[in-house]
Each structure stands twice: as structure tokens, then as C-alpha cells.
Amino acid sequence: MSGKDFQDRAVGAIMGAFIGDALALGPHWYYNLDDLRRDYGDWITGYTDPKPGRYHAGLRAGQQSQAGFILELTLASLVERGEYDAEDFCQRMDYELFSLLDGTPVSGPGSYTSQSIREAWRRRVKQKLPWGQTAGQADTTEAIERTLAIAVRYALDPAQLATAVAGNAALTQADDLVLSLTVAFGTVLGQLVQGHPLDTEISDRLMKLVKTGELPFHAVTRENLQPPRPGDPDPPRAGRFASPDALLSPAYMAAAAADPGVRIEPAWKVSLVYGMPCAIYHQLPAAYYLAARFRDDFESAVLHAVNGGGQNQARAILTGALVGAQAGFSGIPWRFTDGLARGTDLLELAERLAEQAAGEGR
């Protein structure tokens, strides 16, 4: 396990996500890399203003997008309630977010509202449906971007982590594949906060938790993915997800990062290899790769995530959380927190959550 203190890793995961979000605020969603370089130069190194007429126009360098706003809302609920309280979270979404939206993309905190949040808003506000009937079919990482705080809170209790993340994610995500990938990311992040590295062994550790029934994934293989033997019974379904594949992919990304015969140079081109769009199946492989390759180098990891263009904000949030958990907050250059809008407030919330998470294991 990592020598970093548990609370240092927990704070690093949360602050890494906030920093990744703010770093991509200006250069968000440039799918033409020539346009990105024209507007921001050959290499983005810090917080930048969004350009007029582009996403998040009117905001300033270091501020949060709506993803950061919702992450803070989730974090505040966890800290104030001392645990994941679904009713409290939903009330905050109703009164602190949905009251600021009008159902259009360019609206609300951060000056842009994602598809899944717009769909939930329509069901909740326009159709007057109860929470639990608000999920849509968006295939993005939107739920991961807020539930990463829940994953940190329950890092020492994988079963509770999976239950809470799945329940919260299902408020906006209806697709079981998206939900399984969301829960898998949370379990990976929990392992990193515990002190395990993002390496080729991580999936084996996760599969052991499947075998003990702590993670809600179905698997028929034996140890090391060996085939079942004649006469072996079909194991009882541990949970709702029909396949453990979402838990297996992180180890493959880590193997690619460690294999000298597999090189993505420069590393920002991970966006070209795995894809620049928003879908979760583009975002997760890139984030896992960068977090495995730069596990102790927070700055390199998030800057390569940002400079790859496309949906670089989600890529940077996820990468920032994963690398922040490995490097610890002590491994994040102070300039990123210092330049973050309300950075000291966010740090205080992260520290309070880390204290609660650490208390789970006492």
C-alpha cells in the first residue's frame, strides 16, 4: 500500500477532481485541436478564461463548471449528514440546482447543463415525477463526477460504497451498463484511497470482492479468470450487474501504461486513441491510462488530460480524482489549489469528508 496517509489520499481525490474540472473550464469541448492550440497555445499549464461564444463563456479562470457545482453539493450533503442521505441529496438538487435551471443547455451554474441533468430536471420539474423516476439514457460520466465523493466517503467499506454509488447514480442514469461502469469507477477510486496503486493487480483485488459478495457484479470464473469446472454450480447473483467486465478494464489500461511496447506519445494523445467524445466508454479508458502512467505526478496527469481536447473536462475530473488519490493532496502542487476559486472552502469540505471516511475504519 502507498505510504501516503489515508486522509491525505482522500483529500487528494476530492481536490484533484475540483482542480481537473476548473482546469478544463476554458478549453472545454474543442474537437478541433488546431482551434484549441490557436486559442490557448501549444500547452495549457493552468486555469484559463473561456473564450467568448464558447462553452462556459462569462466565467473566469479557476471557477467550477456545473459538474463541480454538483460535486460540491454532494460533498456538502455527505459532510453535513455524516453519511450518504438520499433524501437530503435530492432536496439539495431540488432547491440548490433545479431551481436555477430552465431546461436548456446554456443555463444554470457553470453556464452549461449536461444532458442527464436536463433530462432529470424535465422529469422532476416539468412532469412532477418523484425522485427514482428521473433517470435518463445519457451515456456519459455525469454520475461519476458527483458520486466520486461518495466513493471517497465509503472507501473503507466497498459494499456500502457500491450500494450508495449505485443508488445515487440511478437518480440520473437508467442504463445498466453506464451504472456498472460508474460503480466500477467508484470501487477503483476507493481502492486507491485505501492505498492500493492503479496497477495490473487492481482488477484481481476487485474480483476477490465480487467473490465475497461485497461488490454487486456477477462472475462465473474461478481465481485468475480460470474457467469454471464441470459440475460447478452457477454462483448466486451478488447484485444487479450481469458482468464484472467493468472491474477488469482498469488493469488492462494499467498494463498498457506499464508496457514499454505500448507507447502513447505525447500522453495527451490518449484522447485520439480512446476517443474525444463524452461517452463513458471513451472517457474511462483514457482516465485509467493517464492515472496509471502518472500515478505519482498529478500535474502531468491532469495537464495531459486537459490538453487532449474534446470532452477534456470529464477526462480531467476523473484523472484528477484517480491521481489525487495516489499522490495524495500533499503531492498536488499548491498553485492549483491557490488558483482555484474558493479553493480554501473546497479544501475544508474535503478535509471534513476525509475525517469522516477515516472514522469508518476505527
Rank of each mutant, 00 (worst) to 15 (best):
T48G: 07
A166G: 14
A327V: 14
A138E: 10
A251R: 03
A76Y: 00
Y154S: 10
C278F: 05
E223L: 15
A76G: 14
A86R: 13
Q7M: 15
E119Y: 11
R122K: 10
N32F: 06
I202W: 02
L189T: 02
G339R: 08
T172V: 09
I202G: 08
Y112I: 09
Q137N: 14
T48F: 06
F18S: 11
A22V: 12
I332S: 10
D259T: 12
I14D: 01
A174R: 11
D232M: 13
Q137G: 14
A357I: 02
A325F: 06
P236R: 11
E201K: 08
D204P: 04
I144A: 09
R81L: 05
L192I: 07
A291C: 08
W43P: 07
L248F: 02
V178I: 08
D94G: 12
Y95P: 05
A357L: 09
M15V: 10
A184E: 02
L71H: 03
T140M: 06
A314C: 12
A314K: 12
S243Y: 05
G3V: 05
L349D: 01
A258D: 07
Q91K: 13
K51I: 09
G359V: 01
R54D: 00
V165W: 04
A10Y: 00
M253Q: 13
V188P: 03
A164W: 00
Q115P: 11
E348C: 12
V178T: 10
A291Y: 02
G190T: 04
G320M: 08
D8V: 10
E299A: 15
A155W: 01
L23C: 08
Q115G: 15
Y154T: 04
P228R: 05
V220P: 00
R9V: 05
A174G: 15
Y154E: 03
Q283S: 14
A149C: 10
G239Y: 04
L23H: 06
G331W: 02
G186V: 03
G361I: 04
A325S: 11
V183Q: 06
Y55M: 10
T337E: 11
G261N: 12
A341F: 09
L179W: 01
V125M: 14
Q311H: 15
I150R: 04
F298L: 07
L353S: 10
F98Y: 13
T147H: 07
A57G: 04
G20W: 02
F89V: 02
R37S: 06
Y252L: 15
